[in-house]
């Protein structure tokens, strides 16, 4: 062994920004996350050139996976042109030379905040969800050490109790997004804050999903063909948002998750949250023939 064999020429930044050692740690933790689905694995979480809470966890995963042949899609709230999605996409392509796309079907890596695209993901695609708060027990136990012990003991009684109390008080479960869900029958996870609409897309999916919280330094995963079951009582079924009957005012699409746009003079219009799906529908209406993939929901009904 020589000194020269242990050194490399100096470079201002590594390929993909993260240095080799940071990437190795991400790899080691991703392996464990996939091996124990839904279990939060702690990791060091390096600082990256965007602020904590702005997708640094997802970004570290994507930076580890990306290569020049990757095609990345970045969305925020379902939209590719959201400012933070644009910022992350620009950074990713700049440091990796990877291609970028808005088309869900063309992407190999999809980094998302708060949504899963409506077109079904395939086995050759990886979904990376940005996670602000990885801990489903936070509302009942803010102390992370105590919450960790509860996961170790599969002690989810207090979580069930809050859901029960919501039903008693409000007549229904009041959980909005981030609905606590049992993964592989063992660990309850907080599915980033995707809406309830999107949670069934993780259940027995064809694709791998990696969820990463950079600020809280926790990474977890849902492998393909893995059970993801929202916590529900036998007699109170899981309810997705009541969007099945809404129509997008711009694209004419019906039966997908919608953004509500308040209107002057009262009332609301809606537009489809998966912006690229809307773009495709508009292009189709204008006579083009963009490929629209099979969608998880058809006419507002989840397909199994």
């Amino acid at each position: 062994m020589t000194l020269a064999s242990l050194t490399r020429p100096w470079r201002a930044f590594s390929y993909g920004f993260l240095d080799a050692s940071a990437k190795r740690e991400m790899r080691r933790k991703m392996i464990k996350a996939v091996a124990v689905p839904g279990c939060q694995m702690p990791y060091a979480s390096r600082e990256v050139p965007i602020a904590r809470g702005w997708g640094t966890g997802g970004l570290q995963v994507t930076l580890t996976l990306v290569n020049p042949k990757s095609v990345v899609k970045v969305i925020d709230q379902g939209a590719d042109d959201s400012v933070n999605a644009a910022s992350i996409r620009r950074f990713l392509t700049r440091v990796s030379g990877a291609g970028a796309t808005n088309d869900t079907l063309a992407a190999s890596l999809i980094q998302s905040r708060h949504r899963i695209p409506e077109e079904k993901l395939r086995a050759d695609q990886i979904l990376i969800l940005q996670v602000p708060n990885p801990e489903p027990l936070r509302p009942v136990e803010p102390n992370m050490s105590a919450a960790r012990q509860m996961h170790a003991d599969a002690d989810y009684g207090r979580l069930w109790l809050t859901l029960y109390e919501q039903i008693v008080r409000s007549g229904r479960v009041m959980q909005g997004a981030s609905y606590p869900s049992m993964v592989n029958g063992r660990h309850v996870m907080s599915p980033s804050p995707i809406p309830r609409w999107d949670v069934p897309k993780l259940h027995m999916a064809d694709h791998l999903t990696i969820l990463s919280a950079g600020r809280e330094k926790r990474i977890f995963a849902v492998p393909p063909h893995t059970r993801v079951e929202p916590l529900v009582f036998d007699d109170v079924p899981y309810r997705v948002e009541d969007h099945a009957g809404l129509t997008c005012a711009r694209s004419g699409l019906t039966g997908y998750f919608m953004n509500e746009i308040p209107q002057d003079g009262g009332g609301s219009a809606h537009e489809v949250s998966d912006s690229e799906l809307g773009v495709k529908a508009i292009r189709r209406a204008e006579g083009e023939d963009p490929e629209i993939g099979a969608t998880w929901y058809v006419d507002g009904e989840m397909q199994r």
């Binding site: 709230q77 708060h114 919608m258 953004n259």
Partner: peptide, 8 residues
Amino acid sequence: VTFQSSLD
């Protein structure tokens, strides 16, 4: 999106 979900 999360706001919409809670609003629902």
